[in-house]
Design a protein around this nucleic acid. Structure first.
Lengths: 208, 208
DNA sequence: ATCTGTGAACCGGTTCACAGCC
DNA sequence: GGCTGTGAACCGGTTCACAGAT
């Protein structure tokens, strides 16, 4: 399969969300135009995005809501459960551990790690904070798929190196630091500082 | 000034971070190549980004670290303090309220709001959760610039409409819901569900 | 000699427009 | 007639390559 742009994948997630809403409302079929209106894109964009993966619609008719949902879930890899673990049981890690939204899409948070002796052993939601030294063996034993990194910036890269070495191939980092990973690993970074500075820039340059 | 791509602004933030590191290390001058190496871009990209705002370097020499830092801070609007407020004192709102990283870049969190009577009046870091009904008047009175939205998805759009109507022009949302704002308002959205689904997609399509 | 600043070429994602099917 | 699927045109961000300054 040829390379797919990240923006496309993001839109597919969005479409899926709308399809689920539509399904709940009992609609059986939907057109690219209707999907586009919900998501703030164009019908051509929707059709192009979908066409990258196959032909899911019927000309003159539109898309079957349930079929397209199923297809999108398949494309996005949501047909299974992913084992997620959190590294860092500070404020952000704790908030992540107790975040409800993960479960309903098949992302199951099954472990939280920290180095601080004071934090290890403490309950967090329905988990208990584990010692970071156990992380590597747990990754193999529990088949951990996705790492959520919520640690101070200076700890980020060494920890990434450790989880990558232990076989993890997907990381979502909240650490405000640039991180490097080998090509077979996918890293996404949420950096609040950057987001705020983009807002600051926009406020200052309001005289667009 | 012509329109600047968001990716450019994000890189400027990155450059600024590196410049501060360099400054701390006592370097007086830096080349586009050195900046690029740190940030994982190319020297041409660095020069192009900067050239959009003026000529900051000296040919044959490079850029003055302190001058360029100052210029970037100016461009990004970091020469002043921004008043930030948080809407929603749940898990995520609480983590945001206690996040240290904001202050050091001039983003000052000065109020937290919620609707839940049980949460109103409770301390959060060195703030006290305020009643959401006071939000509009506070926005004017306290000159609140930036809203951080940490509320359930169904509450997001109505609250955005309220803060926009009260004069806020910059919003960072953590709510997993699509939000619409008028053109004079800048909205950034951090959506954990999308990030995870992009990772899921990457894991499933590892046969790149 | 070195490194910046920038027009030109390039590339990839988005939009257009229309042929094809229901 | 309505809506999909898709090659072609378009557009804007990135990369190239070189002229210009120190």
């Amino acid at each position: 399969m040829k390379h797919i742009a990240e923006s496309t994948v993001r839109r597919l997630s969005l479409y899926l969300r709308f399809l689920e809403d539509f399904e709940a409302q009992g609609h059986a079929t939907i057109s690219s135009g209707e999907l586009a209106a919900q998501g703030g894109t164009t019908s051509a964009q929707v059709r192009k995005d979908l066409s990258l993966f196959g032909s899911f619609g019927k000309r003159g008719l539109g898309y079957s809501v349930s079929d397209l949902s199923r297809s999108l879930r398949g494309i996005l890899g949501l047909g299974r459960e992913w084992n997620v673990f959190i590294v860092g049981a500070g404020k952000i890690g704790a908030a992540l551990a107790q975040f409800r939204g993960f479960r309903q899409r098949g992302f199951k948070v099954i472990a939280v790690y920290d180095v601080e002796p004071a934090r290890i052993g403490r309950p967090l939601g329905d988990l208990v904070v584990r010692d970071q030294t156990e992380m590597e063996s747990d990754i193999a034993r529990l088949r951990l798929d996705i790492a959520l990194l919520a640690v101070p910036p200076e700890a980020a890269q060494p920890l990434v190196d450790r989880v990558v070495k232990a076989g993890v191939r997907a990381i979502l980092s909240f650490a405000p630091a640039p991180i490097h990973v080998p090509p077979h690993v996918t890293l996404r970074s949420v950096n609040m500082a950057f987001e705020l500075e983009i807002l600051s820039y926009a406020l200052v340059h309001a005289d667009k």
